[in-house]
Nucleic acid binder design. Sequence first.
DNA 1: TGCTATTAAGTTAACGTTAACTTACCCAAC
DNA 2: GTTGGGTAAGTTAACGTTAACTTAATAGCA
Lengths: 350, 350
Amino acid sequence: MAKKKPTTLSDIAATIGVAPMTVSRVVNRTGYVSAETRQKVLNAVKEMNYRPNGLARNLKRQRTETVGLVIGDISNPYSTELANAVRETLSVRGYSLFICISEHSAKEDITAFESLVDHNVDGLIVATRSNSEGDTHLREIVESHVPVVVVGRDFSHDEVDSISADNFTGGFEATQHLIDLGHERIGFIGAAFADRDNLKRLQGYLKALESHGIKIDERLITGRRHEVSEIPGYSTERMGYEGMKRLLALPNRPTAVFARNDFTAVGAMTAIKEAALSIPDDIAIVGFDDIPLAVHTVPPLTTVRQPMRIQGQLAAEMLLCRISGDEGLKRTERTLDCELIIRGSTVANN
Amino acid sequence: MAKKKPTTLSDIAATIGVAPMTVSRVVNRTGYVSAETRQKVLNAVKEMNYRPNGLARNLKRQRTETVGLVIGDISNPYSTELANAVRETLSVRGYSLFICISEHSAKEDITAFESLVDHNVDGLIVATRSNSEGDTHLREIVESHVPVVVVGRDFSHDEVDSISADNFTGGFEATQHLIDLGHERIGFIGAAFADRDNLKRLQGYLKALESHGIKIDERLITGRRHEVSEIPGYSTERMGYEGMKRLLALPNRPTAVFARNDFTAVGAMTAIKEAALSIPDDIAIVGFDDIPLAVHTVPPLTTVRQPMRIQGQLAAEMLLCRISGDEGLKRTERTLDCELIIRGSTVANN
DNA sequence: TGCTATTAAGTTAACGTTAACTTACCCAAC
DNA sequence: GTTGGGTAAGTTAACGTTAACTTAATAGCA
């Protein structure tokens, strides 16, 4: 059987003997149509199983009421919360959301951008980690007048708004907390080699040590050597596990560690327990993100919470503002406060 | 400043004095164009920052080379793996993937279907839990000749392929494993009220008990009373925690529990530990999904692994087959084997 | 009666592309 | 020198909608 092609407005119009425009009016509930004609049209629509062709409609209307979101690390609950907050905010305004995943490489970023832009989304929210190739491409997209907002990543452009949590201060406070508890040998887990320059959490960690006059020991900073982009998000428990193993093997092992995120922290906790050490007595540990699981680890994980819902809401609102507003809006940059959540992994009876 | 509208093929054509078709040929690398003209066009394209309008192109071409995926429970790593496998399989064939989340309600399902169909995706993969309202709508979509494949959920229609893990046997084997270890009072955690009839894992559990002549005690089957659909996926740790609390409060508490998924299991473990009981000595526990975290719980979680990557690949392949093939293909149904992974939460020195 | 307002349509053209067809030229081969 | 195949374009129309305009009939009112 050959592929049947779908019913069009004109098909309907032809069968009941009216102009296509009349059918369009019924379908869109605009203009004047008599009750009688309306009913005839509606019957035919139902009978012939008509669905409007979105491509044609959007082409004519010159907008799609659709926004694209590009995320990596999709399995991290914090990405989920972001996506949900974005979607909810958009849906109130009648926009729908398409998500593309780019978990591994710049090439995937570019493919994601392309397919969203190809579908004429009205705007783009980008929440993947930045990389030069992808950024170049993104810049081109911005230049072609597609509104863009970035979340939790670097990207500076006059017409691109940026939202992120204050990862630097978060990292600083996490480390500060450990220092306050008397720790001096504090490890960092999960810095990939390429991250050194743009991982704010790591920089906060370094700054905290420095401002307390603690000398930085490079051996305490661990992570994979290869590109971050090769590692799917949810496997970072392994990253944490391996990183911690390496720290534990040091002649003078740390008494506390700060992990780049909660998954990494969970992996590190496993390594610590395998070494039959106690948390937090032998080694205290702080994570980042406050995933729902964090209260369920043993002991519960001290971590830094970042307000993902608010980031999502803001991103959606700013994008809608850019979509409906004039061009040439000045860049807005919002940095949201994080909150240190102290639990049993750093303070014993907590 | 007013919104500038984007450059079109004809704009380019006009500026360099050729026909739009010639520009189209250059952009699409088809037909004959002299090297000289090609270069002129390419220069203009770059200079005027031209991007093809996907809507117009797809409208003309009558296909979008795009597939839509609707998932709920997006934060579950198993969803992530599904999405990734689908995307990878599609991208080999030049298709791109748009994901819509529907985590809470039938209304969201419908919105997701609508926005994907409105964008004329060439096909749809649906992996949300089924519900009657959404299913009715989905049926309409199928009737209008959009290829659909469902993953891990019920939906019977002549032209809709279906992939799922063998949740029934998985549930059966998980329970069987507990029975083999000598348990007789075995709880089930995470059955929402509406699930009774369509949660295969629960049915496997019931069947296993029955076939060993163990009487079913309704009080051992716990879960929320309200609709599953109200609960975002990642909060099910709480569901597990609360369910376990209730089981522990029973006069004759179970000696083992089977949790509907690993998140639920993790929550349950927390409740067990809070009650100062030992796993697996006082209470053994089995989960489902084998999320990466499962090896990191204390003790590591016995669970049932389902082959998500393969499900994703198969779904994508079957959909592509439906997209390019004739209509009227007979329904294919594939059920994939699960694998029981035994760890320390059921067998002590494991 | 004439004039405007309202209702109920139909007509035209355009959104930006591209498939299919046509034109025109050049050069080689019989 | 005619035929014909390859090359380099241009022309036309259509994909399915809808904005903007036009037409026509009816209704309301001074």
